Simulated scan of single mutants.
Amino acid sequence: MSRTETRRVTQRQIAQLAGVSQATVSLVLNGRTGEGVRIPEETRERVQRVIEETNYVADPSARRLAGVDNRILGVFTYEPAFPTRSLDFYTPLLNGIEAGAEKLGSDLLLFTSTPVTNGRRRLFHERNRLRLADGVLLLGVEMDPSELARLVEEQFRVVAVGRRDTPAIPYVGIDYTAATAELVRRAIAMGHSRIFYLRIDSEGESVRDRFDGVRKGVVGTSAVLADRISDGGSLEADWAAVTNFEPTLLIAESPDVAEALHERAIEDGYSVPGDLSIITLASSPRLSPGDVNFTRLNPPRTELGERSVNLLARLLSDEDYPSESELRTLMPCPIVDGATLSAPTQEARA
């Protein structure tokens, strides 16, 4: 069944296919049980089977009008949230989401049963449970634009955490472009003229925004920029590319890559930041007193999570629904001065 066909499926059609009344379908969808509500288990299973076969997804606003408001906020992550390599990204976000939900008196429901296709989780599938939540928060570096568009078409109450290109999808994001451009301009004003950028291989909007910021920071100057994709798995190859280019400034998108190359530079006798300045476009929440104090962007991810919850709550509100300009907003990204950016030495300039 195509997406258009799925969108047109109604409760009345479900009732016809299951051979029951529309009222029975509504009761099954809303999970109504108790005194005065007697639906044979066989009937309930038959209705549920038709719902799954047709990929029917209930309109959250209709459920709210019917009095179904469980004060449950769903959380869907396009990438697994708990592997070690994901903790730096997701932990502060989830902390903020939890704090926001607690203030609202709402519970969180983490959707984990979604199937994985080509290494990515699918939001819509035959056992879709999005209707269990009153609204859903979407997390992930990359999100499926077609799924986001479908959410908009079917008027789901959702908020994407992070800026999205998909028209009309509500989001709260971080203005990485402006902050990155500002940091690069600061470095160039100090005298840096050769810049090497190790970036992440991703088409996620936040990744592209940081790359745009690097390029905007260089535009209109005499600085020369080179870039290379790195996931941190080929340290020697990354370091060889850096030294071959001979930059005075190394930009590492990942804090882990910045830390590894900082150690490698020291091993080779480089002075940081005198011979080679290093900045990173993210900040690890696991910093300890002994860690390198990188000059860096410090994305306010905990605040991002909490503000995303607040926007979702307003989407669910009948009294405080956000204005058009409030549906898609960007938060400023602070810059930490750190200790790894300075004017290059005369030897480095040469």
Rank of each mutant, 00 (worst) to 15 (best):
Y197V: 00
S206C: 13
P167H: 01
P299A: 00
S61R: 14
G213S: 13
E326L: 08
G96S: 06
L132Y: 14
V50E: 05
P299D: 07
R120S: 09
E263P: 02
E205K: 06
G338N: 06
L29Q: 07
L148S: 02
A350Y: 08
V172I: 15
V219L: 10
V37S: 06
R71P: 03
D201M: 02
A133M: 10
L130S: 04
V158P: 02
G67C: 12
T43N: 06
L330A: 04
E236W: 01
Y171I: 05
G217L: 04
L109P: 08
R64A: 08
S202M: 08
S284D: 07
E319V: 13
V141D: 14
K216C: 04
L287S: 09
D337T: 10
L311R: 01
T114F: 02
Y176E: 14
A133I: 09
K103L: 14
F124K: 04
S113I: 08
F294H: 00
G213H: 11
D320Y: 10
G96N: 07
P247W: 02
T295A: 13
R44P: 04
L287V: 10
I278M: 04
T345Q: 02
P344Q: 05
R215V: 13
V9S: 02
S2T: 15
L235Y: 03
E267D: 13
N95P: 02
G31F: 08
S323A: 08
A226E: 12
E5T: 10
R208T: 14
S202W: 02
L225K: 04
G34W: 06
G67V: 12
L108C: 09
H125G: 03
G100I: 09
Y321K: 12
P92M: 11
S323P: 00
P344V: 04
D69L: 12
A101N: 07
A226C: 05
V136E: 02
A348W: 00
L138Y: 01
S21K: 05
E203I: 12
I279A: 03
L104N: 08
